[in-house]
Nucleic acid binder design. Sequence first.
DNA 1: CCAAATACTGACATTGTTGTCAATATAATT
DNA 2: AATTATATTGACAACAATGTCAGTATTTGG
Lengths: 219, 219
Amino acid sequence: MPSAAKTAVNPAKPAGKRIRRTAEEARRLILDAAEKRLAQQGPEGLRLQDIARDIGISHPAILHHFESREGLVRALIARANTQLRDTMLTALAGGHTNSDASDHIGHVFEALSDRGTARLLSWLLLTGRASENSPTHNIMGEIVEALQARRAEYAAEKGLPAPDKEDTLFMAMLTANAAFGEAIIGRQLAEAVGLDADGIKRFRNWFAKLLNEHWDGRN
Amino acid sequence: MPSAAKTAVNPAKPAGKRIRRTAEEARRLILDAAEKRLAQQGPEGLRLQDIARDIGISHPAILHHFESREGLVRALIARANTQLRDTMLTALAGGHTNSDASDHIGHVFEALSDRGTARLLSWLLLTGRASENSPTHNIMGEIVEALQARRAEYAAEKGLPAPDKEDTLFMAMLTANAAFGEAIIGRQLAEAVGLDADGIKRFRNWFAKLLNEHWDGRN
DNA sequence: CCAAATACTGACATTGTTGTCAATATAATT
DNA sequence: AATTATATTGACAACAATGTCAGTATTTGG
């Protein structure tokens, strides 16, 4: 026993007052903090200790609620997925009779870029965690379905021929790609070419118009 | 001095045969390996030891050539930037007289998705390393410039009014966003909706056509 | 009021990663 | 051939991050 006073383990610390949340509440708090970190600092900013400090708890508490760091990540992904899907579908359902695409487009873009959703998802894709959760699969399927339905409805209304299925699909893909891209490089891009917030809005409108014209012209 | 035999430092190991490259060659090798790792495994796959092992060197060799991990990252970014810019500009310059956009679009998309360039850049953006290197700034500026010039030329040829500058800008932005998005979520998206490689090609053509129509119609 | 359940904590263990250093091998130069 | 320059390496240092654990505080239910 070479080293003498090794285990100093001070058994003091009566301490007191400890905030105790319900498990659900705690999980939500932690996920929020993690999401914020991720959006702000990227993948490497997702450290248990940091997250814990942000909300004033100890990092083992996180492990208590999510088993492991990977568990936290999975929960994060799952939540982002459902959130994204909900936003998307309600955005599509919102337009009612009026078939102007600009609303939809705007909603879709905002859903992705508003918070770190796109960043979170892209990180998920970059790290190859995609296949586990079948994330885009369900979402994209539902959305294309909804879009195609709307389009068919619109076509019937105007007595036009039924819309080409693949064409609808491509419109959806383009929108998804563009929105995703914008969420990630949008800011940099806009800044690079001297576009302010209003310019970005104009861009979105321009895109919506482009799609609208195609929507009408192609049917 | 409690611990006795602490420094065992065996001075043996005559060893022999050691590959010695020129500094430039070594740097290139390392950057290639790093890029591959990054493209395959995402941001968290960029570990010095792994990269070193991939090319059969020791990790201090990397540090010798790049000072630090951050140095490696910066070099990586710088190289990706110039590569991307070159590809883009040559793609734009290639079309000569023929003003069909599909060629350009294809080139742009491929430039981004072929190797991990987009992934690399997106990671750079996600981690907030963007401002340091003024990455997109120069690139985007040059490209819009080139595009606008081409468009003006095309308009003059056909005796049409000069193209709207912002319209050109928006076309470029949309293309950039879409290409970027596709590079990241494209595979997942295509898979999700049951598109094969040929379908992806059809999508790109569809997009090029959309832009072409706009190009003509708007002028 | 007591007991069980559990959210939470501090201290520690473990592991992995970057970075340092002295030593060594190899290429270039004289 | 000897010298210089430098690419390369093994061993170690320092640090950071996740994960473990035994114990503490707080709520809930009897």
